[in-house]
Structure formats: structure tokens, C-alpha cells
Design a binder for these strands. Sequence first.
DNA 1: CTTTCATTTCAATGATTCTTGAAGTATCAC
DNA 2: GTGATACTTCAAGAATCATTGAAATGAAAG
Lengths: 103, 103
Amino acid sequence: MDEKLALATFGALSNATRLRIVRYLVSAGTSGRPAGEIAQAVGATPSRASFHLTALADTGLVAAERQSRTITYRIDFLAIGELARFLLEDCCQNNETARSCCS
Amino acid sequence: MDEKLALATFGALSNATRLRIVRYLVSAGTSGRPAGEIAQAVGATPSRASFHLTALADTGLVAAERQSRTITYRIDFLAIGELARFLLEDCCQNNETARSCCS
DNA sequence: CTTTCATTTCAATGATTCTTGAAGTATCAC
DNA sequence: GTGATACTTCAAGAATCATTGAAATGAAAG
């Protein structure tokens, strides 16, 4: 993960609505959830949810897949892992204190 | 780490100048660096650096300590570790794919 | 006590991001 | 075809965030 993407990904996670979406999609697992259901789950209008889903998709944190009328969004666990790796390895130079938190 | 702090911390890391400061302070290790030196290292005016250092300190990513005229800023490795933990455990429910990136 | 040095704070401006509601696109069912 | 459903896009305004340069603070030194 390059620095530019890391900055954008941190930005994506710094919004309450988007973080709620991420958590909801994590709980949904690999099957994902349709946009409308996500909007309802996080208490956002369809338009607002779409705005934030697009922002998340732009960073690769979620992937979108159209199935006829519905668009399914799915969390990308690898993208989150890569962000954690960026934080601990690239940024923190593998500092032991930092790493010890999630081992 | 609660969600509110996590949001603020992601926000703190989503700015290029602040990320440069974090990386510079990581390379400085536990002794930290004075504000002026940080400003110079990241190519920011004193005022701009101060603004971003305050933002970082507000989230606990760095700690400030005054020594007579100079103010030393130090990275808090634990805070970064806690953010990584939030990401992998709280957000990702310990998903193995996410965890595998930094093990 | 004045000056200098290191740094912060302030106010103004500019830039980015978020929200809202309306209009648009795509797909299905009739 | 028309109508309904699922979702996105757009434009306008509101809110938040970043940059700048000037003024203020706090601490040492002469």
C-alpha cells in the first residue's frame, strides 16, 4: 500500500457513517449486503449511503457488484489488513510496543 | 480505544503533513524532537507544524513536553498499536484474512 | 528590563467534505 | 410500451479543515 492510498483510506475511516458501514459489512461477512439494506442499517438516506459507499469503494475498502437491480457491497478484509500493516510496519518500523497490541 | 477516539485518530492520520510528522517522530524514537526541528524536517512553517502537532497530540498519537523554551514531541507507539488493534479486533472481528497481513 | 529565541494562538481566507432533495439511470414486471 | 424498484448522480448550501501571516506567550540571556 502506497502512502497516497493509505492517506485516503485513513480519511475514509474517519467518518462516523462510513465506519458504521464498514462494521456492518464486516458483520455481514463475505456475502456482502445490498446498498438499500446498508443505508437502512446505518440510518442514512439512500443518497447519503451511496455517497459514502462510493468513498469506501474508491479506497478499496469495499467492493461493489451489481446483480440485476441491486448492488451488493462487500468488505475487503485484505484492504483492512494492508492498512494495519502500513500502520505497524511502514509507519512504525515494526516497533515492538505498537505491534504488541494486536498479537 | 472507543469509537470516537478511533474516528479522530483516523482523521489525524489522513493528512499528508501529519503523516510525515508521525513518520519523522517514529524515526526519532523515544527521545522525540523539538517542534522547530519537526517543522523543518517536514517542510512546514512553525505555525503550520504547530497546528498539526496539536491535532496529533489531541488524539494521543504524540505527547508534548516542554523543556525551557523548546517543546519536545514524542510519538506514542502504544496509541498506534491501539489503533491497529481497533482496526483488526473491534472493526474486523479478528478476521483471519485481515490479521494475516501483519503477523 | 529589554532583547532574542522557540513556539503557539488568532483571525481571515481558501479548500475540502458532507448533507439534502431532486433528477437521472438501470433493471425488472406487467 | 408503462410503472415500479434499486440505486446513483447532481447541484446547492452547510460544515469542517487547512494555510497564512501577524500578534502573543514563555523562557532564557545580556
